[in-house]
Amino acid sequence: MVKKISEHQQDANDLRIIHKDKLSVVLNVLVKISAFITMAVLIIMIAYILITGIPNITLDQFSLEYNTENVSMMPAIINTLLYTVLSLLIALPLGIGSAIYLVEYAKKGSKFVEIVRLTTETLSGIPSIIFGLFGYLFLCIFCGLGYSLLSGVITLSIIILPLIMRTTEEALKAVPDSYREGSYGLGAGKVRTIFKIILPSAVGGILNGIILSIGRIVGESAALIYTAGTLPNIALNVMKSGRSLSVHMYALLSEGLYTNQAYATAVVLLLMVMLINFASNKIVKHMGGKNEQN
């Protein structure tokens, strides 16, 4: 068995062959301090938000109707759910479809594939505020959708599209070629092979993509403010405006009147994100760590 580098170091330490010079000691300490700082930053953040936030959570923040007295975050939570489901409804078929094209159909090195990859990378690097302004210009004004759930959903779909494409593509690539050959050998056509053999084997990777996308949607604020508006009620149809939980937090902070509620909202947001992360880790582990997130 080939040894890992850290095990080599263990050997060297055990035998005490190497006398460490000053620089090595300094580097060693620096590396460990940095790792410690990274850990500490997260722990401090989580602890601070939980400790200051939890006492501020009250029951009436979870009532179905928002009014200026209860400043309920429940409508925002429901809206977040709506955004998540509807955006996935649009982005999943597109993302999975394009990943299937890239892995199963595309010829290697074709110009079209190059352009698809470049544009996908570009999309994933565009900051949310730019998506927000684009959604405002294109969806709200040019298409006449106004500040609405629909404008927000379409904008969010564009944001998560590259994420779903990338995770699905990796999952499809991890399906062994022998599956495809076996299926063809039994006389199945390409489409049948894709839907009956390849997609079911890639479902773990796709699921992880979905969960990462949910995380992105839950955390999104800048892109939604100018597309979906900031009305604090449940969006009863797709043409109505409604704020998501992150936008709710933004609104609370910019109004400056509801600091306690902002603390409480931060806790709920943080818990949501931690839950999503936990689920994603479980899935990656379940797949045997084959598909790393990066």
Binding site: L42, I49, G219, S221, M249, A266, L269, V273, S280
Partner: peptide, 12 residues
């Protein structure tokens, strides 16, 4: 830890 740092929303 690093995944979680990446996942925390910017508003938080």
């Amino acid at each position: 830890v690093i995944d979680l740092l990446a996942g925390i929303p910017s508003i938080v």
